[in-house]
Design a protein around this nucleic acid. Sequence first.
DNA 1: AGCCAGGTTTGGC
DNA 2: GCCAAACATGGC
Length: 277
Amino acid sequence: MFIGSEEIDLKLVLIDSAQCFHWTEMRDGSFAAVVGGRPVRLWRAADGIHAEGGMSAPELRRYLDLDRDYAAVAEAYAHIPAARRAIELYPGMRVLNQPAWEALVQFILSANNNVPRIRGLVENLSRALGPEFEIGGQAVCGIPSPGRLLDCEEEELRAMGTGYRASYLTGSALAVAEGFPLDELREMDYEDAHELLTTLPGVGDKVADCVLLFGCEQASAFPVDVWVERLLRSWFGIECGGNRTRMMREARARLGEHAGLLQQFLFHAARMGDMEL
DNA sequence: AGCCAGGTTTGGC
DNA sequence: GCCAAACATGGC
């Protein structure tokens, strides 16, 4: 199935840029995952991106953010040296629109953790509790639903390596199972959505912004982790005494409605060592 | 051994 | 409101 011929670097977006941690690269160079309970495989052909599996082309176009005009975003930030530079570095970068629940689980696990280990934890959880499919001749497992997480004792989650985040997972799963309006965050004002998300256990200001940016189409959400903090200091002169919440507010105020899209370029540049800090 | 990783929570002022 | 310490885990 043909998805589109827009510019996108699948490996960068799905594997290397730490917006999600559950895609795998197959031996033939295609990429597989379960998204929203359905298996998907994506690959690049001569004419563009193709897919097979349970998602429709429009759904995949939205997931991969193919309908956004990134050239316009680049232009809007072109007067800011750090922004211009980071955006130029990764022409194939796109910001995913994941199911909110999947972003929530993955970024609860991301707290005070590193990318390879986050990936391992997501895999452990998915293999043990998630839905399993076969695609491209290989088994793929999805991120477990709230109900599946609640079927499981906190101790078992801990045994999968989640550590103290186990209680956050069960706590947030319970809240969602009992009606926390995850799907309404998309239509809410940023401020309201952010405040509501931080009522969930394991969700502070930073994880909330990751869920909003990668799972709720809130393009202004601006997660500040250690890498973005360093870059904000060195390239923007934003210090705020090292208080990341204040740095986030200042960056959002300066960068506007697409601040979060830019954040993804800045984050990757800092983490890859492609911009001096 | 000690520090770091896409931080959050808790308790004390 | 701000601040410090505790929190699991694994790699270097």
